[in-house]
């Protein structure tokens, strides 16, 4: 019994140390790991496996006696008896440590409440050890995060998550071939405009109507523009938004390539005369003055 208890103690401390370092590392599910938290799950799995190995080894050790009986050529009865003994032993050491039902009179207390009696069974060992384990983990958790300060607080976690994303963005920029901005943007090709239409229908039609006729936001098909009608200006309006007028910024939702497609689509529906158009707002825009002059409106009409 003593050796088992020692094994337990060793095991409990080992696991708690393992888990402590990582049990609470939070990370956004889809973000590849902040520093060091990749091994969180690995360590939890290792801990779990150790637990399984421990339980298995105790069970096997007990099973050994049964196997020896069989080897000795004992009869089936003895094997069954052995199995029962094996289970009883296990129950006593790990599970309930209960006095068998047949002998419960021995542990019946003299309590009687409206006919309800109470037994004096011991605390189940696994329950007791489990409770100690959680207490130890709790103490180490507080030490780690608030005394030793070796674990990150939520803001540190956030900062490392953001730093990781920034690094990725940096490497993306280094390899990106066509990062555009409001200065360099040009009209997309037909495929790009078609892609822009899909984005438009999903994200923009709530305010600008599904044919760009306007609603909460202005009509995008007439020749009047509040914030300029060149491809560069439309790109800029989408990218940064016009918060004071309720046009939100989309640079966090869409890549610059997507904004280019979107802006190109918006330009492409100019002059499409959809039904129920919203009254013009802003200044008249003359395509002649548009240095980014595009294809004639009637050839890019979108249904």
């Amino acid at each position: 019994m003593r050796t088992i208890m020692n094994k337990y103690k060793l095991f409990v401390t080992g696991i708690s140390l393992l888990l402590l370092s990582n049990i609470t590392r939070a990370q956004d599910a889809a973000t590849p790991a902040t520093v060091g938290s990749n091994d969180t799950f690995l360590l939890i799995i290792i801990g779990f496996l150790l637990l399984v190995v421990l339980v298995m080894s105790i069970m096997l050790q007990q099973m050994g006696t049964v196997v020896r009986e069989i080897k000795k050529g004992a009869g089936a009865e003895k094997v069954v008896g052995g199995l029962r003994a094996w289970w009883g032993n296990l129950d006593k050491r790990i599970f309930t440590k209960a006095v068998p039902v047949e002998k419960e009179a021995d542990v019946m207390m003299d309590h009687d409440y409206d006919g309800i009696k109470e037994l004096d069974n011991a605390l189940p060992p696994w329950w007791k050890w489990g409770f100690y384990f959680t207490l130890i983990v709790a103490v180490f958790y507080i030490l780690r995060f608030h005394v030793w300060k070796t674990g990150p607080d939520p803001i540190q976690e956030y900062n490392s998550e953001m730093a990781y994303a920034a690094k990725k963005a940096e490497s993306r920029r280094a390899t990106a071939s066509e990062e555009v901005d409001e200065k360099t943007v040009t009209m997309a090709d037909a495929a790009g405009i078609a892609a822009g239409k899909i984005i438009f229908l999903k994200n923009c039609s709530a305010c600008h109507g599904s044919t760009g006729e306007g609603g909460i936001g202005p009509n995008l098909t007439d020749n009047y523009w509040l914030h300029g009608g060149t491809i560069n200006e439309v790109f800029k309006t989408i990218k940064y938004g016009v918060p004071e007028k309720g046009m939100q910024s989309w640079q966090k939702a869409f890549s610059s390539g997507e904004i280019k497609e979107l802006a190109s689509f918006v330009k492409s529906i100019g002059g499409s005369n959809p039904p129920n158009p919203k009254a013009p707002q802003g200044n008249l825009f003359t395509p002649a003055a548009d240095s980014t002059a595009i294809l004639p409106a009637d050839t890019t009409k979108v249904q």
Binding site: A98, E104, M108, M109, H111, D114, G115, I116, K117, E118, L119, D120, N121, A122, L123, P124, W127
Partner: peptide, 13 residues
């Protein structure tokens, strides 16, 4: 315990 007509398992617990 009433419905099962059994003693409570462990007073210590």
């Amino acid at each position: 315990p009433k419905a099962a007509n059994r003693p409570v398992y462990s007073y210590k617990l």
